[in-house]
Design a binder for these strands. Structure first.
Length: 484
RNA sequence: GGUCCCGUGGUAGAGUGGCUAUACAGAGCUCUGCAAAAGCUUGUACAUCGGUUCGAAUCCGGUCGGGACCUCCA
C-alpha cells in the first residue's frame, strides 16, 4: 500500500516513494547520552519505530534504519570530567585519558538507552546501525574540509564556523524553518556561545580545544586545530557515510527543525554538493504531562525507569505514547496510562482465547491486516485512527473463537497489526501456577456449587478471595485467576 | 518582539462543511444460583463571539485560554 507522509520540507502531506526501490533509508536523530532518557525522548523513538514498522508492514518496503548516538557534546564532556559528581562506579575508574573517560561515561548511558528501547518494544535487530559520533570524527573532518574548500566556512580562534551569509548567496538557508533574522528575540541564548563567530547566525563546525577537555587532532589547510566536532556535523557525516545522500526520511523532535536539522541540511548541501540530504523530514510533537510541559521544577519529569519502578509495564507506556497522532502534543496522564493498560490487557486476552482455539499463528501475511487499519497507518501514521479501526474489527469479529478458521483469520490480522504496534504477545497463554491449597478449595467449592449448596460455595469463594484468587464458573469447569 | 500550533463528551483522543470515531471510566441489559469474564446497548461533546453557507465542531475574522520555536532541548 502506498503511504502518505507529512514532510516538513514541503509543509504538506506527500505521497511517499522510495528513492531506491530496493530499500527505504531512514536516519533518526538519537539521544545525547549524558543521562537516562526521559519519557519525552521516548516518544520520539517510539514514533520513529512506528514509522519504520509501517514502512515494512504496510508499505512492504525493506528498511535500512540508522539512529545515531551523540557521545560528545558540552554535557557529556562536563559530566565525564575528572571529579564529576555524575560519575558512577559502574563506569569504572577515571583516568588521565579524557577521551577514555568520555567513552566510559557515554558507553554506560548508551547501554541504558538500548535497554530502554528494548523495554519499549523497539527491536535492536531493526537497526542497521546505531553509530556513535566519536567513531566518525574522520568523516566529519573531511566534510569540514569540503565546506571550507567550497567557501562556506572560516576559521576563528582555533574553531571553524559555517558562514551562513556566504551560503545564503547561492542556497536557501531556512528550508525547514523560516528564520526571521530581523526579529531575533532579545535574550541570553544568542550570545551564550563563548566562541567567536562573525555573525550570530553562523554556527560552529569544529570547536577549538579547551583545557581539561577531550580533543581530536585536526589538520586543516596546514593549520593545526585540535578540538572536537560541533553538534550538527555528526549527523551530516554519519548519514552520508551510512546511508548515502540523499536518503529517504530524516526524523527527530520538532525542536530539532531549527537549528539542528537546518544546519545539517546546509552542511550536506555545502560540503557534499547535494541539494537534499533527505527527501522527507518528519518531526514529532512534544509530550506534556498532566497538561503541563515536563520539567523537573514541576515534579512531573519522568523516565521510563521511574514508571517501571512504580510497577508500570513498559509496553503500556509504549501504547500510551502511541495514543495521540505524532504531530499533535501528547498529554501523558496516569489516567491514560491506566486506560491503555486495561485496553492492552483485554486485547491480549482475546489473543490468548484465539490461540486456545487456533494455536500460535505463523508469521502473518501482510495482506491479513484489515484494510481500514492499514489505510489509517498509511495516512501519515494515524495510529489513533488505526487503533479505533482495530477495535471495530474486533467487535465485528467477537465470535471468532467459535471456529478455528475464523480464529486463525483474526489472529493473523492482529499479528500483522502488532507488527506495527508491538504491544501484544503471540506466545501461548502463560501457564498459571495454582498453589495446591487454592486448587483444593476451588475443587471443594465446585463440588458445593454442583450440589447447589450456595452458602458454602460463596463462603469458599470469599476464602479464595482472601488468598488472592478469583474463581470463575464455566459451564462444565471453572477457571482461577489471580486478583491483580 | 517575531513565527507557528492547539482548545472536542468524566478522562485520553481521531475526524473535519451535512452520515456526530475509538479507548478507559460510568449506567443499563444479556448470560449467571449469585458473581466474574465476555457480549450488547447507552451518553449528542467540539473554548467564546460574530461572519460565510440551505447547513459549521469542521471555512473566515475577533476575543479568551494553553503551548512550541526564534542558535547545541526529542
Amino acid at each position: 500500500m502506498q503511504l502518505h507522509l507529512y514532510n516538513t520540507l514541503t509543509k504538506r502531506i506527500d505521497l511517499f516513494t522510495p528513492l531506491d526501490a530496493e530499500v527505504v533509508r531512514i536516519y533518526s536523530c538519537g539521544p545525547t547520552v549524558y543521562d537516562v532518557a526521559h519519557l519525552g525522548n521516548m516518544r520520539a523513538f517510539v514514533f520513529t519505530d512506528v514509522l519504520q514498522r509501517v514502512l515494512r508492514e504496510v508499505g512492504g518496503y525493506p528498511v535500512r534504519w540508522v539512529m545515531n548516538v551523540t557521545d560528545v557534546d558540552d554535557k557529556t564532556i562536563r559530566d565525564s570530567s575528572v571529579g564529576s559528581a555524575k560519575w558512577r562506579s559502574e563506569m569504572g575508574q577515571q583516568s588521565d585519558d579524557l577521551r577514555a573517560n568520555l567513552r566510559a561515561y557515554t558507553g554506560h548511558f548508551e547501554q541504558e538507552f538500548r535497554a530502554d528501547l528494548t523495554s519499549l518494544g523497539i527491536e535492536m535487530s531493526h537497526f542497521a546501525q546505531m553509530p556513535r559520533a566519536t567513531d566518525y570524527i574522520g568523516q566529519m573532518q573531511d566534510l569540514i574540509r569540503e565546506i571550507i574548500a567550497a567557501g562556506y566556512g572560516y576559521t576563528s580562534e582555533g574553531s571553524v564556523y559555517f558562514d551562513v551569509a556566504a551560503y545564503s548567496k547561492k542556497h536557501t538557508y531556512g528550508r525547514l524553518f523560516t528564520i526571521d533574522t530581523e526579529n531575533f528575540r532579545e535574550g541570553v541564548r544568542i550570545d551564550a556561545d563563548e566562541y567567536d563567530r562573525e555573525s550570530v547566525s553562523d554556527f560552529v563546525l569544529w570547536k577549538g580545544r579547551k583545557d581539561d577537555e577531550p580533543y581530536w587532532d585536526f589538520a586543516l589547510n596546514g593549520e593545526d586545530l585540535p578540538g572536537r566536532p560541533g553538534w550538527h556535523i555528526e549527523c551530516s557525516a554519519m548519514s552520508k557515510e551510512l546511508l548515502g545522500l540523499p536518503f529517504d526520511i530524516h526524523t527527530g523532535g520538532v525542536d530539532l527543525r531549527f537549528p539542528h536539522h537546518e544546519d545539517e541540511l546546509a552542511q550536506c548541501c555545502a560540503g557534499y554538493h547535494v541539494h537534499d540530504q533527505a527527501r522527507f523530514w518528519m518531526h514529532n510533537e512534544f509530550l506534556e504531562v498532566e497538561g503541563k510541559k515536563m520539567s523537573k521544577s514541576l515534579g512531573n519529569f519522568f523516565t521510563l525507569r521511574d514508571l517501571m519502578k512504580q510497577g508500570c509495564d513498559p509496553l503500556d507506556v509504549r501504547l500510551t505514547l502511541m495514543l495521540a497522532h505524532y504531530r499533535a502534543v501528547l498529554n501523558f496522564t496516569f489516567d491514560s496510562l491506566r486506560a491503555a493498560s486495561v485496553a492492552r490487557g483485554r486485547v491480549q486476552n482475546v489473543i490468548w482465547d484465539l490461540i486456545d482455539v487456533a494455536g500460535v499463528p505463523e508469521a502473518a501475511d501482510k495482506s491479513s491486516m484489515p484494510l481500514a487499519v492499514a489505510e489509517a497507518f498509511a495516512d501519515d501514521l494515524n495510529v489513533p485512527q488505526a487503533l479505533a479501526r482495530m477495535y471495530e474489527y474486533l467487535a465485528a469479529n467477537a465470535d471468532a473463537k467459535n471456529s478455528k478458521e475464523h480464529a486463525q483469520q483474526v489472529l493473523n490480522a492482529l499479528r500483522s497489526i502488532n507488527n506495527v504496534l508491538a504491544v501484544w504477545s503471540f506466545s501461548p497463554r502463560p501457564a498459571l501456577v495454582v498453589p495446591n491449597d487454592v486448587r483444593s478449595i476451588a475443587d471443594q467449592r465446585w463440588a458445593a456449587r454442583t450440589a447447589k449448596d450456595w452458602a458454602e460455595a460463596d463462603r469458599l469463594r470469599s476464602e479464595l478471595g482472601t488468598l488472592g484468587w478469583s474463581m470463575k464458573d464455566g459451564k462444565d469447569d471453572y477457571t482461577l485467576e489471580p486478583l491483580s
